[in-house]
Structures are given as structure tokens and as C-alpha cells.
């Protein structure tokens, strides 16, 4: 099914001109508006991969809910992971306005046919990872997502406004955990530094390949479904993170990291793009496990979903019978 408006024969040019004018004027495209098929396909890919990332992203931190070392941290972490499920739900709903079905998107995820953010294919080894994921991974996600609040596609832009607010709250909580741990014992400080060492480079990779190797960037920027290049966002993230790391008292694991007064930015080293490609293509430390867990939940839950469908059908039939009987006796 497609909700895109059907064009009468020969009218495509007029619709295209109208679409182009809206984009040029920075106005929003809404689900019932005409849109080029390639724009729709590109958005479905972007929004559904984002939704999958939220859902898979529940796992690395979710693993620590049961063992969180204080009840306050347990509540914060549980609320955060619950928010991520909520983000997944808004985003699947935004994708559905483009004429795709959530069940089909779920199938694409658990069959490995669609990707999600590769950051979640790294393991979370200690409780400090919860704080570092909040600080760096959510921080990088915010850098990526704040511009998307002005995406040309209305439902995605509106979902992003709410998601960004919640993400920034998560980032604050993550950073606050790290501040507390750095004021704690020697063992806690070592845990934080170890987690920073492991998550720094994967966080930089969250912005995607360098601009020169990012084939879709130019078109997505022209359509205003992407607003900044990968390299610009990566620089912004580094500039933002260095003073935060100093305040925290941790060392970022990059010997090339240095302030460049001429550019007005930090210089930094090159992430390992070979590793990046391996993780994206499915050979990361946790790819198979993340997907297997989601698939197992889906398969184990099939009988429950079938029961809900059967019950809804029975209720509808009973309501219909009641109406029929009332009409017959009226």
C-alpha cells in the first residue's frame, strides 16, 4: 500500500515542481503530499534503521538493569531503556506513514536484511559502560539527531523533537553517573577510564564514513532529510567532548588530539575504518547475539500475538451478533 498521492497521467512534472518548491522554501513534506519515489524509499530506510537502532540499543545497557548497584541507578536505567523502546515505537509509526508495515520492518531487522547503528554491536563490560554510553553514545546520537528535528519529512522531524529532549536527559544522567564514579574509589575511576578507552573510537564512527566515502550524503542533503555532513558532525562532537572529558578527569585515547587555534577546532586521529566496515557488515563482536535475542523474543511471543488477534476477532464478532440481535428484535 502507498499513501503517496496518485498522479494523473502527465502531471508528475507539476507535482515534482511543487515538491521542489517546498524543499527549497524549507517547508515540511507530509505523508499525503506527493513525493518522489526515491525520496520515499530513502526515508523509509533512514527512519526504519533509526527505529531498529533504538530497539537493539536497549540491549547493551539493558544487560545492567538487573545488577545496577543502587536502586536509584536501577530506576534511572530502567526508565532510560523504556524510553528507547518508546523511541522505537514513535519511529516505526513515522515509517508507517510512508506506507510500510511495522511487522515487515521487524521481519527485516530480525532476518538481518536491514541495518542498525553498529555501535550497539560492541559489548558493555562493566557498569561504567552505562555512564559512558550515556555520555558519548547518546552525545553522538544527539549531534546526529538535533539537525533532524528540521528534516523535511514532517512526521520524522516531529518524532525527533521529542526523542532529542529525552536523549539529552539520558546524556546528562550518564555524565552525572561518571562524575559520581570519578569521585569514588580508585577501582571506580579505573572502570570509567577503561570504558572511555573502549567507547571513544566507536562513538566517532557513529557519524558514518568520511564524506569522501559517503555516497548518499549529497542527495540526502539536497532533500533536507540530512542537514550536515558526517565529517562536520564528527568535528562538532569532538569539540564538545574534549572539555567534558577534562572536567571528568579522563583521558581520551587519541595521541593526535590537540587544539588547532588556526582552525578553531580540535585536530584528532583517524578512526579505524577497516574495523568500522567489518562491524557494519556484521562481523562485530555482538552482531549475531543482538539479532538472535530480538528474533528469539519475537518467535517465543508468536503465540501471544496470535491470541491477541484471535481475541480481538471474537470480540468484534460478538459485538456484531449483539447489534444483529438488537436490530432483529427492534
Amino acid at each position: 500500500m502507498t499513501v503517496t498521492q496518485e498522479a494523473p497521467p502527465g502531471a508528475d512534472d507539476a507535482f515534482q515542481a511543487d515538491f521542489d518548491a517546498k524543499i527549497a522554501a524549507d517547508r515540511r513534506i507530509e505523508p499525503r503530499d506527493w513525493m518522489p519515489e526515491a525520496y520515499r524509499r530513502s526515508l523509509v530506510r533512514q527512519v526504519s534503521q533509526h527505529a531498529h537502532s533504538e530497539i537493539i540499543g536497549m540491549q547493551p545497557e539493558g544487560d545492567w538493569i538487573a545488577s545496577a548497584p543502587s536502586l536509584r541507578r536501577k530506576a534511572i536505567l530502567l526508565a532510560k531503556v523504556q524510553d528507547e523502546a518508546g523511541h522505537g515505537l514513535y519511529l516505526y509509526a513515522a515509517a508507517e506513514t510512508l506506507g510500510v508495515d511495522r511487522a515487515d520492518l521487524t521481519a527485516r531487522l530480525i532476518e538481518g536484511r536491514q541495518k542498525y547503528s553498529s555501535i550497539f554491536n560492541y559489548p558493555s563490560l562493566t557498569f561504567a559502560d552505562v555512564g559512558v554510553i550515556g555520555w558519548l553514545v547518546d552525545g553522538a546520537a544527539i549531534c546526529n539527531q538535533v539537525p533532524l528535528c528540521r528534516s523535511s519529512f514532517g512526521p520524522y522531524a516531529r518524532a525527533m523533537v521529542r526523542i532529542c529532549k529525552e536523549e539529552s536527559f539520558h546524556q546528562r544522567q550518564g555524565y552525572e553517573l561518571l562524575l559520581r564514579m570519578m569521585e569514588g574509589t580508585e577501582g571506580q575511576r579505573a572502570m570509567v577510564q577503561d570504558a572511555v578507552d573502549r567507547w571513544w573510537w566507536p562513538s566517532l564512527m557513529m557519524f558514518g564514513p568520511p564524506d569522501a566515502d559517503s555516497p548518499n550524503t549529497a542527495r540526502s542533503m539536497a532533500w533536507r532529510i540530512k542537514r550536515d555532513t558526517n565529517d562536520d558532525l564528527r568535528q562538532k562532537f569532538v569539540d564538545m567532548s574534549v572539555p567534558q572529558a577534562e572536567k571528568l578527569g579522563v583521558t581520551l585515547p587519541d595521541p593526535e588530539l590537540a587544539w588547532n587555534a588556526e582552525r578553531g577546532h580540535y585536530d584528532f586521529g583517524e578512526p579505524d575504518w577497516v574495523e568500522f566496515k567489518q562491524v557494519v557488515s556484521g562481523a562485530g563482536p555482538k552482531n549475531a547475539e543482538r539479532i538472535a535475542r530480538r528474533r528469539a523474543a519475537h518467535e517465543k511471543g508468536a503465540w501471544v500475538r496470535e491470541a491477541a488477534t484471535a481475541y480481538a476477532a471474537k470480540r468484534a464478532a460478538r459485538a456484531q451478533n449483539t447489534t444483529d440481535t438488537q436490530e432483529a428484535t427492534a
Binding site: I55, A75, L78, A85, A296
Partner: peptide
Amino acid sequence: VDWVTDAPELEEEVALANIALDLLGQAR
């Protein structure tokens, strides 16, 4: 908490997490 990332639907994960949060709040 065990149901979060393991429920039949995402809506159930949200609901069960919510219930667990309420109970955790009462316990505290």
C-alpha cells in the same frame, strides 16, 4: 525486568518496564 528486550511486543516491554518502575519506586 527480565522481560525488557524479551517480550512478545515492544508495547509489552514498555508496559512491563513501567510496572517494574512503579514497584521499584514503592520499594525504595
